[in-house]
């Protein structure tokens, strides 16, 4: 199974950057991508290409991340192509159907925006290990403590969710096999019947998850877990470069948010 934006270990300068800096860059990029015009979007494309080269990933591998989203992009493009008013491109309009120059331009631009967005998000997860990502999130959400939300609690929740993902997938398989062994068929019947067959997996899965959660909570407590700040095996320190990158990202993001 190919996983979207799966972490690819490496020793490049992009890999080594502080996760907080990388997360802030991606957030700034997302703002820029949605606010900027065609020229800046082209520049963002160039920037991402440079990052791919710096992190020593192959372009082909990175582009794979877009593949699952292609049908969505195609739909988006077509909707804009056919449904935007303006000057029709000859030989249109044929019968009631019309394609316009404006539609072509808008569709292409929107798809390009989404491509860049998916690319920057998957690039982040490709060059940052899940645990580093969580440390980055914890740092990013630290200001939330003024609202009474503890970012270390959120970080533990997030890492447990990631940790138990494969376990839950295995569990689904087990329940499904148990059903199959008793004569269930998930591939027969109409859409409604099939949907019902799948929901019959959801109930045992939910119950098992609760039982698992109870055991996990006991095991965590037994290992001295309590809410609030904790320390980590890898303490990441910010380098000068990280501060510069964060500063640049914040300025660029704020500028595009305010002025475009």
């Amino acid at each position: 199974m190919y996983k979207l934006g799966q972490y690819t270990p490496g020793g490049s300068c992009v890999h080594k950057m502080h996760p907080l800096a990388k997360i802030i860059v991606v957030i700034a990029l997302s703002i820029i991508i949605f606010r900027a015009g065609a020229f800046v979007l082209a520049a963002v494309g160039g920037f991402l290409a440079a990052i791919i080269l710096l992190s020593r990933l192959t372009v082909k591998y990175v582009l794979k991340a877009i593949r699952p989203a292609l049908p969505f992009f195609a739909l988006l493009f077509l909707v804009h192509l056919f449904c935007t008013g303006g000057t029709p491109i000859p030989p249109f309009p044929l019968w009631h159907v019309s394609i316009t120059y404006e539609g072509l331009r808008q569709g292409a631009l929107l798809v390009w925006r989404f491509v860049l967005l998916v690319l920057s998000a998957s690039l982040l997860t490709m060059v940052t290990s899940p645990s580093e990502l969580i440390i980055g999130m914890e740092r990013l959400l630290k200001p939330l403590r003024f609202l009474g939300i503890s970012s270390s609690d959120l970080a533990v929740m997030l890492s447990l969710a990631l940790r138990f993902m494969p376990a839950l997938l295995e569990e689904i398989d087990r329940i499904r096999e148990a059903r199959l062994a008793r004569g269930a068929d998930f591939n027969k019947g109409g859409l409604l019947k099939r949907t019902k067959a799948v929901t019959s997996l959801a109930i045992p899965l939910t119950l098992n998850t609760f039982r698992r959660a109870e055991e996990l909570a006991a095991a965590m407590e037994a290992r001295g877990y309590r809410r609030g700040p904790r320390t980590y095996l890898k303490e990441l320190t910010m380098a000068q470069l990280d501060y510069i990158v964060i500063g640049a990202a914040v300025i660029a993001g704020a500028a595009s948010f305010l002025f475009f």
């Binding site: 309590r226 095996l233 303490e235």
Partner: peptide, 25 residues
């Protein structure tokens, strides 16, 4: 054992307890 492992890697899991004690890295 599945329900008492909290880390995403082996060493991270072992570090969970000492992390709860707020020990230095």
């Amino acid at each position: 054992p599945d329900n008492q492992i909290v880390g995403m890697t082996v060493e991270e899991d072992v570090s969970f307890g000492p992390g709860n004690l707020n020990l230095p890295p």
